[in-house]
Structure formats: structure tokens, C-alpha cells
């Protein structure tokens, strides 16, 4: 990625759009402090990503392209393992995990090994992992991929519920999801920021045309 100058507003849902190899995943990895910039700076919640990874990770939930769960552990064991590294919520970890399992309707799979689950259920457990510590900043890389229509609707509703409460950055191919969910969005192509679009212009048909041109 080159010459990216981007500011993401607090407690807004920000969409990152673009075709394959546009740099969406790289941008999210940079924000998640998984990859470090070779030049320039990334500031997250006022903290430089190079020196404050531990602090940033306490407040950040990252849903990666890859499954960040251990296949040899059950769904519950995975969530229990991740919970050890974060500050305990008032309700306690077991109740928090139960709450998420119910919310994502995966409680009946909680004692099954992740490796034995379908990719859609794995994804829902990974979303539960991302939300586990109730992070202020959510980075969701293609949250609707590998999900059936019903699950997509559920995740859509869940993300919609974060509006005004959390800062959410979503990367997606799906312009319809982005238009309905996002307050702001940025369109990327070949590692470059093509355009940043605010909420007023989101409904405009021109975005579809612009995105279509990039995809071509």
C-alpha cells in the first residue's frame, strides 16, 4: 500500500471496499498491528501502533480472513483460552461466553471441536472470539464470507447494533451490505485509496458506477 492518508471517525461504521488485491486485508492487518508499516505511522485510539501493541490489543477485536481458532480445541475451550488474556467483565467470563454463544446461536456446538465444524459455524465462533472482550474497535475482514443467508442477516443485524457504540471497520466486496451498514467508506484499488465517501453521498448511484469501473 502506498500514500494512504486516512482518518476513521470514532464510533462510526467504516467500510473498506475494493476488488481482490486492492489492499483491504493489508489495511486491516495494519490497523490490527499484525503487520507493521514500512513507512509512515498508524495511530489507533491515539496510540502509535509500533510501540503500543499490547495496549491497543486490549481494546481491539480482529476478525481475520483466516480462522484464528485452534482446531484441536472445542468452541468453548477456544473462547475460554482467549478470555484469559483480557480484563474480566463484570458478569464474569463464563456468563459472557454463554451470552455470545446464545447471541450467535452456536451454543449447541460449544463442546464440539472446531476442526469438526462446518466453515459457517467456525466463522460464527470466530466472531464470538472477536467480540469476547467487548472491544471498542472492531476490525472485520469479510465478515459475511462463508456464511449462509440466515447467518449473514444475523451478523448484519449484530454489526448494525454497534452503530454509535463502537468503531467498526469492515472490509467487503458487497457494495449492498456496505451501503446499508456503513457511515463512511473508502474504495481501494491496487493498494491505493481511490476515494473516501461520507454518509451523505453513500446512497448516490455514482458509487456503484465508480466501484463498477474499478472492478472492470
Amino acid at each position: 500500500m502506498k500514500n494512504i492518508d486516512l482518518e476513521i471517525s470514532n464510533k462510526k461504521i467504516f467500510g473498506v471496499l475494493g476488488p481482490n488485491a486492492a489492499g483491504k486485508t493489508t489495511l486491516l492487518k495494519l490497523l490490527a498491528c499484525v503487520t507493521m508499516p514500512t513507512e509512515g505511522n498508524v495511530e489507533i485510539m491515539g496510540m502509535n501502533s509500533k510501540n503500543n501493541q499490547k495496549k491497543i490489543h486490549q481494546h481491539l477485536g480482529y476478525l481475520s480472513h483466516e480462522l484464528l481458532l485452534y482446531r484441536e480445541l472445542t468452541g468453548f475451550e477456544n473462547l475460554d483460552f482467549y478470555s484469559k488474556f483480557y480484563k474480566s467483565p463484570n458478569i464474569g467470563w463464563h456468563r459472557r461466553i454463554d451470552e455470545l454463544l446464545n447471541l450467535l446461536m452456536i451454543d449447541k456446538w460449544s463442546h464440539e471441536f472446531i476442526g469438526n465444524m462446518s466453515s459457517g459455524i467456525q466463522k460464527r465462533f470466530d466472531i464470538a472470539r472477536t467480540l469476547l472482550h467487548n472491544p471498542d474497535l472492531l476490525l472485520l475482514d469479510e465478515p459475511f464470507s462463508n456464511l449462509d443467508l440466515e447467518s449473514q442477516k444475523m451478523i448484519f443485524k449484530l454489526i448494525h447494533g454497534f452503530r454509535g457504540k463502537k468503531t467498526v471497520v469492515i472490509s467487503t466486496h458487497n457494495i449492498d451490505h456496505a451501503k446499508r451498514l456503513c457511515d463512511e467508506m473508502a474504495i481501494f484499488s491496487k493498494g491505493k485509496l481511490v476515494r473516501k465517501i461520507d454518509k451523505d453521498k453513500l446512497k448516490s448511484i455514482k458509487i456503484l458506477k465508480l466501484f463498477g469501473r474499478i472492478l472492470e
Partner: peptide, 14 residues
Amino acid sequence: DQETINALRILPIS
């Protein structure tokens, strides 16, 4: 190989 290396990278640990 199992792509869980990023799990170690996103934990709030050094």
C-alpha cells in the same frame, strides 16, 4: 501452517 500464528499476534502479550 494452521494460520493461527496471527492469533498469537493479536493477543495483548509481548
